[in-house]
Design a protein around this nucleic acid. Sequence first.
DNA 1: TCATAATTTATACTTATTACAATTATGTAA
DNA 2: TTACATAATTGTAATAAGTATAAATTATGA
Lengths: 134, 134
Amino acid sequence: MNNKEILIKNGISPSFQRLQVYSYLRKNNVHPTAFKIYNDLKKQIPTLSKTTVYNVLKLLAGKNLIREVKIEDNELRFDAVLQEHGHFKCSECGKVTDVFYDKEFVDFIEKRNKITDIQFNIIGICENCLNNKN
Amino acid sequence: MNNKEILIKNGISPSFQRLQVYSYLRKNNVHPTAFKIYNDLKKQIPTLSKTTVYNVLKLLAGKNLIREVKIEDNELRFDAVLQEHGHFKCSECGKVTDVFYDKEFVDFIEKRNKITDIQFNIIGICENCLNNKN
DNA sequence: TCATAATTTATACTTATTACAATTATGTAA
DNA sequence: TTACATAATTGTAATAAGTATAAATTATGA
């Protein structure tokens, strides 16, 4: 199923801009901010508006096609990998990588509460940056 | 060791405002936002400035006496419970409660990377709100 | 008491996100 | 095809959290 079909299946009419934003997120799996998405896509779509990007992101997140990722203040990032996982952000190089964790204790919480979102973010310095320092 | 002594021990001169903010966080373990702290304390300290609250919070966080907790956009919350744990925020009543989790896989990550902060936030509907609905 | 440093305060600024109204595109019935 | 209704996009202005800055106040120590 391609990106266009996924949008349609989720009740989103696949306009050009929506398809571009969604495709960008699925291709560039780097947890970009809204501004980065806007900035990168503007090269291909010069008329693109920042509001559109925010609208589309909100729409996609509402349909659970992407996930909002909150790591640092003033930057909401987005992720098209839906499998349950956390994130590690290197405070040196800024890269955000995925961290997959055991579901056991999440299941425990889920027994009594209704979970709608999990944000698991680890901030630190990655192996690569640690080595480059010495 | 009382709050004043803790501040001194961590190299923070215990001014009235600093002591008030720190004591507030230790007493009111509800993960308040900076604005809530400011608003509540202003009743006792009418001259209190928002900037002071932000300054003190930053100072305390820098000395690891409190932890910044990022759960939803546009609201940075603060926590004086330093034991490693996550948070569950009920999207109905807004309450934030603590969730303690197994350290095993964090240790795994720590073997190769340097961890400076962990943000583990679960958003959902709490038992209480689920029951009240029916 | 006075000088100096530390702290607090008020104001202005930055920046991510949202609200809103105007414009443009799209799909359908005549 | 045309006209119209609806949906989508755009640009601008507003909102609000957090920060920078500098002035004012307070504390400290000789």
